[in-house]
Design a protein around this nucleic acid. Structure first.
Lengths: 130, 130
DNA sequence: TGCCCCGGTTCCCTGGAGGTAACTATGACC
DNA sequence: GGTCATAGTTACCTCCAGGGAACCGGGGCA
């Protein structure tokens, strides 16, 4: 189960850096988008490039290489012309996808609230306590 | 429910940027550490600074302000001397904590595997296809 | 009288994440 | 023989997240 009960109050002492390491893996600008796009099956380079709005060729390559190196996805080259390279989540990549789902769902639910909170915060003049 | 079944294959079309926005909120270097440290109750500035290894005064302030602005935590100043400022997760902050739990748990489980994958990747000479 | 503590603020600086654009190989197509 | 598509690579540049260190204000306290 992925219910959030398995970590006791000693968790913060035990692995203070794990939080950081997972961000090193998927905390960059494009990784989660790529993982998300691969969650429905293999995709080719150009498919991903078209699906992920705004990503440059270079950053897609960099991101894919990084995820491949981490064992999140596999890169399969078919030696035909024009080149056919397809990317697919590994089993671990799929579990990552599952693990990020609650966070994405959270964002869907709370982003509007966050916008409101920001507006409230920016509107108040309490910045300088007399 | 926080089960990961509510997103269909149309999810990537619907909210392609949500993924990015949630990272804008907690994807930085220290936010998740702060949230994690506040999950067991209110903490004072110096307590957090001591608990989060390596964070500078400036970055703790910046991170706390950002999370406060986003409605993730509250900042409570008691006007005594020496100053007493305590930070506490809002209800939304607690739901965020819950939403990140699976990802942190995932990292705990898979980080060793990732290290292995990296070693394998770095060891292979397939980088230059002749 | 001067130093310490708490919770910051301000200034300066650096590294690296990420963007842009040009270049590549190869076969197919016309 | 020129152009297109695929899947990149390379060089160059910019910007800002984050780090370091100094400074602040006021009560306690020795």
């Amino acid at each position: 189960m992925t219910t959030a009960g398995s970590e006791s109050r000693s968790a913060q002492q035990e692995d203070p850096c794990r939080t950081r390491e997972v961000l090193d893996i998927v905390g960059d600008k494009w990784s989660l988008l790529v993982v998300r796009n691969l969650s429905q099956g293999p995709r080719r380079f150009t498919e991903l490039k078209r699906a992920i709005d705004g990503i440059s060729q270079r950053m897609l390559t960099v991101t894919l290489r990084s995820l491949e190196r981490d064992g999140i996805l596999t890169r399969t080259v078919r030696n035909v012309m024009p080149p056919h390279v397809s990317y697919e989540l590994t089993p671990m990549g799929k579990t990552l996808r599952q693990a990020t789902a609650p966070l994405l769902e959270w964002s869907t639910i709370h982003l509007a609230h966050i916008d409101a909170a920001r507006a409230t915060y920016d509107a108040r003049p309490d910045t300088s306590p007399a």
